[in-house]
Design a protein around this nucleic acid. Structure first.
Lengths: 192, 192, 192, 192
DNA sequence: CTCTAATCGAGACGGTACGTCGCGTCTTACG
DNA sequence: CGTAAGACGCGACGTACCGTCTCGATTAGAG
């Protein structure tokens, strides 16, 4: 029994080495994600890339999905932390623009996260965090069940961003933000 | 050379045996889809369930994704064939209702197709067919790129339906249709 | 039931077509034997090479071993028919020379038969025929069991010939014959 | 990369587990060889018999031939090591007797090795080792090429032993030794 | 010179074994 | 004496070939 009890709470980095190792694994995965889609990255790849032993991986994560989740949790948390206040205080157009700007600045990262085989896990974590954060403010109108609004909002946003990130040309950010606003934020947020 | 050249065009059922075998495989997959999610169904499962030899599977499909695609193509084609005319001739509310009604009548099937690991492939084929069909009618306004409107429409609808199908209770169909209309059809179709 | 009863006696070529087909199969195998060893020739190869259908093969032979056997039986029979009388009437040196000469004239054929994976089946058939023919003349001395003398004689001769056929240079036929005489024919035949 | 680099040099038992596993595989093959001929033993049989995983087999041997080779190399090495000195120091009759005695004491093993489909591989390894060992002593007369003498000697001995081992009765060992001496050792060794 | 029946080609099929790959566990050997 | 390296059991994958089978289409040889 070697690794069944310490990876549940990644917020308590029991040991300095563990922090280093986890960082190495995360970085390794990020590097690989820029090269090939998530679902054809093997754990051996990650271990090799991050310079750790193969078995060491399992001392920190149950499987590669959990590592991605760890990565995603940070990134998504940061994104939500940045855009949510804007959503509350300013109009939805500004929110969409903030979100798109944030993603655009980390295009490589978010391309890897959203356009590979990783999208499923991303969505899941996105929904989890959005649910949690969203629960802290007054609900929208009752015509739309809350959990569905989160799911729809997240998936809609993810699809739009993925479509954008996949394009080769420089589709103007303002226009993406407008689309995001009209297709997702408006219908799910403002409408009551 | 036994199976490298005949699986490209499933519309020409070269042999009576092949038709039988493919039907058996499709049925077998459907049965299994009601028992467990797509991504933990193995090709051996499908072969066993459908009473065919394991190697025979590969004489018809390159992998289980292709079989699902084959299944999906039929089902999605039927769904689109049914709902698209309504979309053109009647109001969008009627369309949403028709779509939801169609799905509700085949709840088991569509649950299997949309709520297991199969959703990705479903989405893909859905987008393909919707693109093809949609290309036959005048485009929507230019503020929303056509390909993105298809992607968003399909994913939005799929998410809403999946959410609905996953619910245990009998969420009223009229309300789902209304949500679908307001979140997806309205924003992507009517809006110019 | 199509081919379970007619292939036992290849001496009664029931139909002109069958004769043609069998000849085609034999020729096809011979051609292939010059290209690769017997055990990596597939029945599909033989069928393709001889221009017949795959299933047709099984209408004539149970497996590729039986086809080889068919081939071998003829060739071995001819060889024995030619050399045995010499063995009885002349000295053993003449016999060895006759045998080597016969093989040398059909070098390609016997190379294929003796130096590929076919050697096992060849040996078997050789022993069968040699036993049958040898049984018609007075036995050798009792110090050497008859069946062993046949086995040893055949295997010895086959090994020597195979060694010879594998050589690239033109090892003189007279010397091979002398070796054959001293190592095989002398010890097993003359010695009492 | 799991099994591509360690099976070349079996003399360096990198890990205690590998030694155990290889021993288990060898023993398993030996057990199976007593039940059925080599060429109808599958790798899955060997894995099951030896209690190892199927894939593990390939971590040690490229195919079952290589495993047999491994087995054979040991056994043949022991046999040659035992009989060769006798050949040099004593008369050939004693050598033949020593060899037959050694085989008789391990009848079961050598029956499996020589009378199944394994004979081909055995012969090959036998020739290899005999060539190597034989190269350390003065050559025989020039009338018989050295490589052919090895081939003939090995094959002759193998055939005689196989014939002996296949017999059900107790053919006297002294007589087999005499035959071996007269048919193989004498002609290839003593004769100049 | 038909007519009938056997043989033919084609190739799908159920099976079995192959060799590869990746996972997640467990042991070893080394620093 | 802990940790990396990596061997291991497991099981799915996709391939190859076997020998069986069902089709029509063709053709031989008897009437």
């Amino acid at each position: 029994m070697d690794h069944k009890n310490s990876d549940l709470d990644p917020s308590t980095p029991l040991d300095a080495r563990m922090v280093r190792t986890r960082a190495a694994l995360r970085d390794g995965l990020l590097v690989l994600l820029e090269q090939k889609p998530f679902d054809q990255i093997t754990i051996r790849d990650i271990a090799a890339q991050s310079g750790t032993g193969y078995a060491t991986f399992f001392r920190h994560y149950r499987d590669k999905g959990e590592l991605l989740h760890d990565l995603a949790a940070d990134q998504i948390g940061a994104l939500i932390k940045l855009t949510f206040p804007v959503l509350l205080e300013a109009d939805s157009g500004a929110t969409a623009l903030a979100l798109c700007g944030y993603v655009a600045e980390r295009k490589k990262l978010w391309s890897a996260l959203l356009t590979g085989g990783a999208a499923g896990i991303m969505r899941e974590e996105f929904i989890r965090q959005a649910s949690a954060v969203g629960a802290t403010h007054p609900k929208p109108g009752t015509w739309l069940p809350y959990d569905l609004s989160v799911i729809f909002g997240v998936c809609g946003a993810v699809e739009i961003l993925a479509w954008w990130l996949k394009r080769q040309d420089d589709f103007p950010i303002a226009q993406v933000a407008r689309i995001l606003d009209r297709l997702v934020i408006g219908p799910t947020w403002k409408a009551g």
